[in-house]
Design a binder for these strands. Structure first.
Lengths: 211, 211
DNA sequence: TAACACTTTTTCCAACTGGTCAAAAATTCC
DNA sequence: GGAATTTTTGACCAGTTGGAAAAAGTGTTA
């Protein structure tokens, strides 16, 4: 009789339905943002009635919060793996590759995050200024030490990280534009490999010919 | 007695109030997206009642359409100026600089556009696949000819343009994140000049030391 | 099979949504 | 100044929104 309401599922059905709901909600939130999304839309996408959905999550906010938490965790993984002990150039190269793979494999999560940023991060500002900043500070330190050792060009490590985020997430967040501009011939599945090749070259060597 | 309803303002008051409304609407739409924005919010931000606002624009869609048109025009300006006859490296450099200035000076327009992209460009897809694609095709051709002449490194011109868009617009669209990560010390006004310096270096030379 | 917890549906609600309309108020123009 | 026009307001409407309540159904297990 009493709704579960708590975050932890207790039965098999609760676990399954919560997953279905979260998946549907990710579709809707990533497309319309928090305010633009409605519980009805999510419920329909999840194949259940609105009151039924509200039996598993007590509010729209709760679903969104949960989605954002899960996403942030996934999102920061590649940066966490960034290894100070590795070879600088190949570490950066594989970080870029992993971020691009995330944009390809989790475009909805990327858009959910982008929506949150566009709205001024009302639900995530604490994570940004706390956990994320700490993590970036740490990795920026690593990058700076590589620069001091002459392993990579001396430049701003923070903006370097920003530019990796921007260029990779662009392929998820601005997917429509990318497809429209590339056209049917080049906008198919191959676009991510073209992007990977291009970005590797950009970050490694830039545009001015050497020598 | 009859509302103007048409796009062209006939009196001084109509011109002024339409501007006030468009400005307020830009605030609201860029923050919440089309679906998430309400006429009431816009009216309040514009300092007038909802029916009064609807006297100047016949619907929410009309305001949004108008905003998007004006923005796309402004947005494509830097790319139009891209000059085939100029020096390749300095043309690219100044394009990057101009795009970054737009992100700094028109962040709301950038976010309006980003919102539209995240939602799959329902109102702009025609422009993307038409006017924009044609323009990019043209400029990509210019870039390609520069590459053939050996003036810049051989790479994918389309993805080059994407990466310029992505890196510059990032400072408008993800402003909250940038500020949060940089912290109070480096997240102030100077961040755009730091970004300009960094991006110039990235696009020109990349990260691998030369020689 | 009967008591039990778990799940789903039906009904409902108050607040909000985009938008209309007629009348009142302000402005402009002669 | 007064008529004509433009602008503003207040009341209103039908549809949607997030969510509550309670009853009805569905297992599960002693």
């Amino acid at each position: 009789m009493a709704p579960p309401s708590k975050v932890r599922p207790r039965t098999r059905i609760q676990r399954e339905k919560q997953d279905v709901i979260l998946n549907a909600a990710l579709d809707v939130f990533s497309l319309h943002g928090f305010r633009g999304a409605t519980i009805d839309q999510i419920a329909e996408a999840a194949g259940m009635s609105k009151p039924n959905l509200l039996y598993y999550f007590s509010s729209k906010e709760e679903i969104h919060r949960r989605l954002l938490e899960d996403m942030l965790d996934l999102w920061l993984d590649p940066l966490r793996e960034f290894d100070a002990a590795g070879d600088p150039v190949s570490e950066l190269r594989s970080y870029i590759r992993r971020k691009l793979e995330m944009a390809r494999d989790f475009p909805r999560e990327s858009r959910l995050f982008a929506n949150e940023m566009l709205q001024g991060a009302p639900h995530a500002i604490d994570v940004l200024a706390g956990e994320l900043k700490a993590l970036v500070d740490d990795k920026a330190g690593v990058i700076e030490s590589w620069m001091r050792e002459g392993k990579i060009t001396r430049t701003d490590p923070y903006h370097l990280i920003f530019s990796i985020w921007a260029t990779t997430q662009h392929y998820a967040d601005f997917d429509v534009q990318v497809r429209a501009v590339l056209g049917p011939a080049r906008g198919g599945e191959g676009r991510f490999e073209d992007a990977a090749r291009y970005l590797e070259n950009l970050f490694m060597h830039g545009l001015v010919p050497k020598g």
